[in-house]
Design a protein around this nucleic acid. Structure first.
Lengths: 219, 219
DNA sequence: ACCTGAACACCGTTCAAGT
DNA sequence: ACCTGAACACCGTTCAAGT
C-alpha cells in the first residue's frame, strides 16, 4: 500500500480508472489521493492542479491511437473512412472522458496534429488540393466530434431513444413539425431503431461522396 | 431591489446573464442567489436543483430559434443550408453555454424534435426516402454539433490558431506526419488563416453534395 | 526533493423553523 | 406558499512545517 513512489504516471492511471468506473464527477483531488493512499497535497508535487490532471487524461486517451499506413492498395475513400473509424474508436474507448477531451481546446489541438495525418494522407492520395484537403479534414473531424458527443452522452441506452422519439413526435401540437411527424411515422418504430455503428458509416458515406464530388467538379 | 417576487423565469434570466458575462464556472447557486439579492435556499422553491437551472438555460438557448418556411422558391439544398445556419447561430449566440447545451442529453433531445423540422422539410422536398432523410439529418446535426464545439471552445482567438498550427507541425519529429507537414507548408500562413464562417460553409457544401450524390445514385 | 496537517474560501443541498 | 439561517458534507488550493 503506497510503498511505491508517487509519480505523474501513477496518478494519471488511477485517475483514468476512477473516471472510467465512476464518471468524471467522481474525480476529485481528494478522492484521487485517497485511492492512492496518499495525502491530497502530495498530488501537487507531480501535477500543478486539477486542470493538469484532466489534460493528462486527455493525452492518455489518444496515446493508444495508432494507424498503419495501408499503402496504395486500398482506395483513398476507404483509407479516409479507416482514419475516421480509428479516431472515433479512440474517443469512445473512454466514454466518461470524451466530453472532457472534446472540450479541452489545448488537449484537442495538441493531439489533433498527430491524429490528423492519416486523413491528410488519404485525401492527398485522392488528388485533392492542399486547400481542399484542409477544409475536408476539418469537416470530417467536426462530424466525428459531434458524433462522438452524441454517442458518449447517451450512457448505454443505445436503442431506447427510438420509442422516445416516436412518442415525443406524436405528442407534438399538430402542425408543429409536420414533415418530421410524417417521415418518422413512415419509418415506424423498427425503422427508428438507431444503431450508432451504421449511423456513423452512413455519415462517412455522405462525407466521402461529398468530398469526391468536390474533386470531380474541380472546385 | 428584490421587491419583485422571485420566479423561475427571473432566476433563469439572471443565470443566463452570469454565464454570458463570466462563464459557466461563475454560475453557482450561491452566486446566483446573491445576484438576485435573495437567500440561496429560495432558489430551491422554483427549481429543484442546479441541474434544473442548467437544463432551463439550455431551453432558453433554443427558445429564440425560429425558421420561416421559405417555400418552394428556393432549392432544397439552400433550404437545408439555411436550417443548418440557423441552428449554428443559435448555438453560438451563447458560447459559454454551448458545451452545456451540447452535452445535456435531455436538453438536446427535448429541443431537437422542434429544431429538426426545417431539415426534414428541406430533404423531403429533395425527394429523399424517409430512411435517407433520417440518416442525412443525423449526419448534418452531428457536423453542426462538432463544429459548434470547436467554434465555441476557442474563446475569441479566432485566427491565432493558424500560426500555432504551422509552428507545431514544423516542430514535429521529421517523418511523424509527412503529408500534414507538406500540405500545411504548401498552404502557408495565409492559407491557414482559418475563418469559422467559411469553414462552416465549406462543410455544408460537402454535406449537401454528398447527400445529393446519394439521392442521384438512388441509394 | 518529496510529503504532510491545518487552514481558507468556497461549493450544493437538507432540514427545521419562521412568516 | 414562500423564504430563511444554520448546518452538513464536501470541494481545490495555499502555506508553513516536517523528513
Amino acid at each position: 500500500m503506497g510503498e511505491e513512489r508517487l509519480s505523474r504516471e501513477a496518478i494519471l492511471t488511477t485517475a483514468l480508472r476512477i473516471v472510467d468506473d465512476e464518471g468524471i464527477d467522481a474525480l476529485t483531488m481528494r478522492r484521487l489521493a485517497a485511492t492512492l493512499e496518499v495525502n491530497p497535497m502530495s498530488l501537487y508535487h507531480h501535477l500543478p492542479n486539477k486542470a493538469a490532471v484532466l489534460a493528462g487524461l486527455a493525452e492518455l486517451v489518444f496515446a493508444g491511437l495508432e494507424l498503419p499506413d495501408p499503402g496504395d492498395a486500398v482506395p483513398w475513400q476507404e483509407q479516409l473512412k479507416d482514419a475516421a473509424r480509428a479516431y472515433r474508436n479512440a474517443l469512445r474507448a473512454h466514454p466518461n472522458l470524451a466530453l472532457q477531451v472534446l472540450s479541452d481546446t489545448s488537449a484537442v489541438s495538441e493531439v489533433v496534429v498527430v491524429v490528423v495525418e492519416p486523413f491528410y494522407r488519404a485525401l492527398d492520395r485522392g488528388g485533392l488540393s492542399p486547400r481542399q484537403i484542409f477544409e475536408a479534414v476539418n469537416t470530417i473531424i467536426d462530424f466525428i466530434h459531434g458524433f462522438a458527443l452524441g454517442e458518449t452522452s447517451v450512457r448505454s441506452e443505445t436503442f431506447d431513444l427510438a420509442p422516445d422519439l416516436l412518442t415525443r413526435v406524436q405528442d407534438l401540437p399538430a402542425g408543429k413539425a409536420p414533415t418530421l411527424a410524417r417521415v418518422v411515422g413512415e419509418l415506424g418504430p423498427e425503422g427508428l431503431a438507431y444503431d450508432f455503428d451504421s449511423g456513423f458509416e452512413s455519415g462517412l458515406t455522405v462525407l466521402t461522396a461529398g468530398i469526391a464530388a468536390g474533386v470531380r467538379r474541380g472546385r
